[in-house]
């Protein structure tokens, strides 16, 4: 379970999060949309302890994330996966080594188990045959899938996605959205997805929240967003044009 209670965050004079609150029950998927600079990615970084709120509470599985010690935060992060907007693959490791890295570094699994887990996730994201390639040798879309695979390989209970479909073609976007949705429905993974894509929101979300200037201005089931009467939400989705 993930919960934010009245979270505020500023960088200097710029207010990025202005009293954000929401709750994501276990096994549910929350999608967050909003214009660039509305605080979506900053909120995501609070959930995994990369940023601390100026005020308010960030709770993951009942733990107050900002109050955890380094060791406790490390333990909690092992239960979580994070897909970065620009993949953030280690550039001198090949695809296989990138995916195996969290298993080799944070678990005591033997080589055969690590290899099996990596192979399984490689198949899931359609990257068979790319194991030996380095990040600089594959496309942005493939890098994104390796990033997703790396987030999945530790079999986390919570997944955070920062624009999972960015840089992917429509066919691959749909495939990745299906993978994300299946992780929720079949494995009961709790997830928060930041996206600009309404298709992604409709495909993977149980709940949809729209951020604007650090505030949550809309929250409901994704399919209802197209009919909502909030002008700012309509403007963002391109439904209402001036």
């Amino acid at each position: 379970m993930i919960e934010l209670r009245d979270v505020h965050k500023s960088f200097g004079a710029q207010k990025v999060l202005d009293g954000v609150s929401f709750l994501v029950p276990e096994g549910q998927s929350l999608v967050i949309m909003g214009p660039s600079g509305s605080g979506k990615s900053v909120m995501l970084k609070h959930l995994i302890g990369l940023l601390r709120p100026d005020r308010g509470e960030v709770l993951v599985d009942g733990h107050s994330v900002p109050d955890l010690s380094a060791g406790e935060l490390s333990e909690l992060r092992r239960e979580m996966g994070y897909l970065f907007q620009h993949s953030a693959l280690i550039n001198w490791l090949n695809v296989f080594e990138n995916m195996a890295l969290p298993l080799r570094e944070t678990t005591a699994l033997d080589k055969a188990t690590v290899d099996a887990r990596v192979d399984k996730v490689l198949h899931l994201v359609g990257l068979e045959g790319a194991e030996k390639k380095f990040p600089s040798e594959i496309s942005g879309g493939m890098q994104k899938r390796v990033g997703l695979a790396r987030a999945l390989v530790t079999e986390p209970r919570i997944l955070l996605y920062d624009e999972p479909e960015a840089g992917l073609d429509p066919e691959m976007s749909a495939k990745i959205n299906r993978v994300i949705r299946n992780l929720n429905t079949e494995l009961g993974i709790t997830s928060v997805t930041v996206t600009h894509s309404i298709a992604c929101a409709l495909a993977v979300g149980d709940q949809l929240a729209v951020f604007d200037r650090g505030r949550m201005i809309y929250a409901d089931e994704p399919r209802r967003v197209l009919d909502c009467d909030n002008e700012r939400v309509q403007e963002f989705l391109g439904v209402k044009m001036d």
Binding site: I48, L50, S74, E75, R77, R78, M80, Y82, F84, H86, A88, L89, I90, N91, L101, P102, E105, T106, R150, T154
Partner: peptide, 22 residues
């Protein structure tokens, strides 16, 4: 520095990889 600005160091931290040791 390149790893830092490309979020690779952050990715290691998020994966609970000890950056000091690694």
């Amino acid at each position: 520095g390149t790893m830092k600005v490309q979020e690779e160091i952050t990715a290691l931290e998020v994966m609970s990889v000890d950056v000091g040791s690694y």
